[in-house]
Design a protein around this nucleic acid. Structure first.
Lengths: 196, 196
DNA sequence: TGCGATACTGACTGATTAGTCAGTTAGTTT
DNA sequence: AAACTAACTGACTAATCAGTCAGTATCGCA
């Protein structure tokens, strides 16, 4: 079998469609068409539509986790504050290059599914913990090296995550030109965190 | 006709269901059952399902606009900074008491519909402009009375809106206890805006 | 009383959907 | 070459859905 498994092209098609149109607005037939496979073939690889969705979520989880660990491994910072601002910028950057992932996470149906599907819930938890942890770690480093003032690292990490997330949403609703706010956001973070 | 029009109970049922389950996961039959009316009766009052949704959005728009104008009319502030922090708190408060409204606004389908429905787009624009304007006005007042330092009121208003919105989302994903972050958020705003 | 309009109902339809299944093809092993 | 298996297909089904329609009940009003 020279070509990479059809299973993968189903996953890719499903990721794109679930992200672009949502779970219930995407039919298995559409996924099959995009993956260039018969409708029935999907049910050979994935038991149900929900099963397919969980697999998509799994691949998003693995994608986000590896992207962030690659980023952390590569970059080298002068201070905790720089590390945090860099993480904010990288988060915003990744959410543009891998928009499908983040749009999928923003969809309510994703969280509704996670409410009664253990594995989905776990994947979501992994993702959010990864996204928040990177801020928290930077905050702790920054407080140790003196670049960031004293404050609860856990709560502050959540607040910063909420801010970044909020900016992303603002961009998605397409009423305001939120892209131009990235620099303001970074400035706000610096201003708020810096050890005067 | 002693009882208030059935049209209203359809709207109420639809608001609840569209918010709780999403547009495509809510069937007209469900709406009818909850409104205690026959399935066909909905189509007497509303031409299509999309038409019903637009009416729901209209009622949410009118609800949010009146709630905020009532708030603005009632409260009286010492300074622009107090006005802004009050608006943040009120926004968070309203999003708890009228959760259906805000959940509906968070749903992707709402924005997808607005993308090719002029009236929906207008209602959404009204809502977001209302929510952002209240921050912008407070920022301008605060800069005039000296309680808030110099910064772009438009961009800062958007950032603050994004923050508040982000906190709301964080609460909805139900992984973190975001309610406890309200005070941290207000503190951050004060710290960032205050004219040292 | 009777007319017309408003507000509804039950029974239906055509389209779409997730999922099934019996069978076929292609590759691997013996 | 025969046997076995993994990957896949086309044709189907049962359920659900938005929307239609012909008819009915209830009302104000002439």
């Amino acid at each position: 079998m020279a070509r990479i498994s059809k299973k993968n092209s189903i996953l890719e098609a499903a990721t794109y469609l679930f992200s672009a149109k949502g779970f219930s607005n995407t039919s298995m037939t559409e996924v099959a068409t995009l993956a260039e496979i018969s409708g029935a073939a999907i049910f050979y690889h994935f038991k149900t539509k929900e099963d397919l969705f969980v697999s998509v979520l799994e691949s998003v989880q693995s994608g986000i986790l590896t992207e962030f660990s690659k980023y952390v491994a590569k970059e080298d910072f002068h201070s905790g504050l720089d590390m945090l601002l860099g993480a904010v910028a990288f988060h915003l950057h990744l959410s543009e290059t891998k928009k499908e992932w983040f749009v999928l996470l923003d969809r309510y149906s994703t969280h509704e599914l996670a409410a009664d599907n253990r594995m989905s819930r776990q994947y979501l938890q992994d993702i959010y913990n990864c996204l928040v942890d990177i801020f928290e770690k930077a905050l702790i480093v920054g407080q140790q090296d003196g670049s960031i003032r004293e404050l609860s690292s856990k709560r502050t990490a959540l607040i910063i995550f909420a801010m970044v997330d909020g900016i992303r949403h603002l961009e998605n609703i397409n009423l305001y030109h939120a892209g131009s706010l990235y620099s303001d956001l970074v400035a706000l973070c610096r201003n708020f965190l810096e050890n005067n």
